[in-house]
Design a protein around this nucleic acid. Structure first.
Lengths: 259, 259
DNA sequence: ATAAAACGTGCAATTTCGTGCAGAGTCAAG
DNA sequence: CTTGACTCTGCACGAAATTGCACGTTTTAT
């Protein structure tokens, strides 16, 4: 690959180049890059460290690999469904009434919800999670609409412009949302900006947003804001959630359901 | 299996490769790996020891086996149940070259294809099958684009106008198609008109269409025509497919690959 | 029982890493 | 114009990781 020979390459350009090579070849090697860009390996290593800190790649000895630390993580998480998440899923499923149009989010808790639906439920379920879609194959009376887009592998959901656009064509009765962070003042947050945008869109296109709040999410915050608590109508929490974790929410205009 | 021939393989990649081989074949042999990767057996043994320490596999004399007996059972079932389809998937996967854009169809054979992809493949895969999408989560270098639409549960694929429209935005290098009927004169057929329409669209938006032809599909016909054999460039069949089943195709302008 | 293969450990050579530090360049306030 | 703060880069040096080899032990197969 030919690199700019006259002007200097800015640091940011260099980082972009590293990510580009990583995307094209699936790996980058520190020594190789330093020769290609005519820089010391120290500089390259620094770049790699910083990019890794931003979660844009995975640092390994000798270079870097694409970021996918959540890969085995997810398949692991999926099998071990805690009782708490099952209960949340069951309580949420009970909220659905016949012939409603429902958005179901991605994530482990949402998959639990899909598993807990009454088998004879008549409804239309719209989801950007292929995992949820696959779960719903066995429900003969449920129409499943799959939202397409680029697959964000960490959460296994479709994101991006086409996903946003597709969501815009729906008006759902309920959106069952998962979130990695639920905080009374900050609001609902997640770890990826694209995913946050999709969740926001889903929220705004549903009459009611119900948050599936498993214990470890309460009081936490992630980098990207989805919506504030004002945009949420209902919270489903585990039965044995400590009262003090819920205190801040009880004063808001919010239904709290204990599963 | 083809390994990266230019750049060096990073240590972590090597471990990932070992786990992938283990998952695919249900076992790994130290000596085999050392020859395949051109490294001393000591290094391989060290890798196996470390992976075993992480609980990712079970160390045995001569190599390693999957971590839990349950997992071995699982991977065993898969390989046995779909021996022929697995071979077809592997042969099809070998056709993909780096950085291509690939359509993968729905259906069991297509899922096998997804499982047989080389773990370090760099490519963009577009699919209207949520099952295929979920399979590809574990491939860090593959960009997955999910085609949305109404879910046709029998085949577990998205169909309908929005699926057709989304497909229209792509131009793929290869379309790997499954079909319930493959007949030399009638062409390719399937059991649902909507699904046929989607397959047709995929076929017309790919430079090359490759049909995954497991044994029981050859010579059969279903109600809805997808395309005639003229629109197909390649057929992948099982190695022991009787010659008379293939006779009619050999006279056509068609590449036949025996898996 | 005996030979061959696989194993584990210790060791040395090489490579890569991280950190502290210094020089060069940029920018803004004085 | 000068000064000071800040950033970026390269170098040095000790620490850590990786790999192959040697040697004695254990396992497997004949």
């Amino acid at each position: 690959m030919q690199i700019d020979l006259e002007g200097f390459m800015l640091t940011q350009q260099r980082k972009a180049h590293i990510l580009h090579v990583l995307k094209q070849t699936g790996q980058v090697i520190a020594k190789q890059l330093s020769q290609e860009l005519d820089l010391s390996e120290d500089t390259i290593r620094r770049d790699l460290r910083e990019l890794a800190a931003d979660g844009l790649l995975q640092r390994v000895h000798g270079g870097a690999l694409p970021a996918s630390p959540a890969l085995a993580d997810f398949s692991g998480r999926q099998t071990i469904a805690t009782d708490g998440k099952q209960a949340i899923g069951r309580a949420a499923a009970a909220m659905i009434r016949p012939n409603q149009v429902i958005f179901i989010d991605g994530g482990t808790t949402a998959v639990q919800l899909a598993r807990q639906l009454p088998p004879d439920l008549v409804a239309t379920i719209v989801t950007h999670s292929p995992s949820v879609a696959v779960e719903l194959v066995n429900y003969p009376n449920i129409t499943v609409d799959l939202i397409g887009g680029r697959l964000f592998k960490h959460s296994v959901v479709a994101v991006g412009a086409s996903a946003i656009e597709a969501i815009g064509r729906y008006r759902a009765d309920i959106y069952f949302m998962g979130a990695t962070g639920i905080h009374p003042e900050i609001g609902l947050t997640t770890g990826d900006s694209e995913e946050a945008a999709v969740k926001r869109m889903l929220c705004h296109h549903a009459a009611e947003t119900v948050v599936l709040a498993s214990r470890e999410k309460l009081g936490a915050a992630s980098p990207y804001l989805v919506v504030s608590m004002n945009d949420v109508q209902c919270l489903v929490v585990e039965r044995d959630t400590p009262q003090e974790s819920l205190q801040a929410y009880t004063e808001m205009d919010l239904t709290i359901i204990k599963a």
